[in-house]
Amino acid sequence: MMMSPAVLTRRAAPVLACIGLLAVWQVASLALKNDSFPTAVEAVRAIPDILGDKESLTNILASLRRMAIGFGVAVLVSIPLGLLMGRSRAIAAFFNPLLMVIYPVPKAALMPIIMLWLGVGDVTKTLVIFLGVSLPVIYHSFEGAKAVEEKMLWSGAAMGLSPAQRLVRIVLPAALPEILTGCRTGLVLALITMITSEMIARQSGAGNILFNALDMGQYDTVFAMIIIVGAMGICLDAIFERVRARLVRWSEPQFDMPLSFS
């Protein structure tokens, strides 16, 4: 398929940005001549070694699995809770102070305690990811549900929808754009808490490879891992964005052109 020059430029722009960043890195590294700052070429060369190594791959997959579970469970719990809070003052009054207390606490700061209770394994790390993802998703679901037009709910009630049906069939879809914004933030936070949790409780995972390499002074591996984690983030976000755009096509701004006809 032929692409117009405008589309071509838009597609090429992110690639150019990445190449630019690597170029600056390369130049800076060559200029500084610091052992702990390998060149971009060295770091990129180390990537196939990591991805070709079975153990490293197992580690990365273990990380992704924890992340997926933590994110998935968080979304499943947080959306209903946020929606209920948005539609019921009593529920909001109960949960709001609790969440206000937890929100500013870095979830990784809770890790030592959770480790004492649940050990250093998967459960602890998944729980930390869960906590990291939950709050933005709850918050955005809450705001989204609160903003749902009363008259829309009344219209549903007049059609015979019960309160529960209204929550699922009106509040949920109406708040979906806002909910998905929260999920997107949550996804990035999942990646961040995943690496942080593995930094604190090393055992397996992408963070484990990174910090072990750091301990051993294998700086090209360290930077290669940073590139890998960054690439994972970009890919996950891009996939999520595709799904999101599909789900909320009806609210996207490209439709913001009303036809002139009464």
């Binding site: 008259k151 009344w154 219209s155 009630a157 009106i170 009806w250």
Partner: peptide, 28 residues
């Protein structure tokens, strides 16, 4: 309580934005 014997039409339209025109009309 509200019921399908009384159908409201609001100044704010209150359409379901995630439904098409047909989807909105078919909803009831």
């Amino acid at each position: 309580a509200p019921g399908p014997d009384r159908g409201p039409v609001f100044q704010e339209f209150a359409l379901f934005p995630w439904k098409t025109v047909l989807g909105n009309v078919m909803y009831g």
